[in-house]
Amino acid sequence: MNKIDIINKVAEEMKLNQKVAKMAVDTIVDTIKKAIVNSERVEIRGFGSFTLRNYKAYKGRNPKTGELVDVQPKKLPYFKVGKELKEMIWKD
């Protein structure tokens, strides 16, 4: 399922036109993205939370050539799945 499928499903179930549903979905995704970029923790109850983690510089290898390369320090978001969603996926 991709973003368009989500938009269509939200439109159908909330009885919205597709354009409005797209605006809503884009706003939701953009809001979360902006918060993550600003190092803000995002918590959605029942779904999960995003936190930005800092990673130090390290020496890595180019997996193709085996060449030693310097990897710059970076920030990556970490997603922790919420309890409710975890249990929904877990079973069966």
Binding site: M1, K3, K9, V10, E13, A24, F47, L85, I89
Partner: peptide, 20 residues
């Protein structure tokens, strides 16, 4: 509804891709 749609899809074992 947005989060519910995603949750139900994942619960069915289907992946969800959000471009960008």
């Amino acid at each position: 509804k947005f989060f519910e749609v995603i949750k139900e899809t994942l619960a069915n074992g289907e992946n969800v891709k959000i471009s960008g």
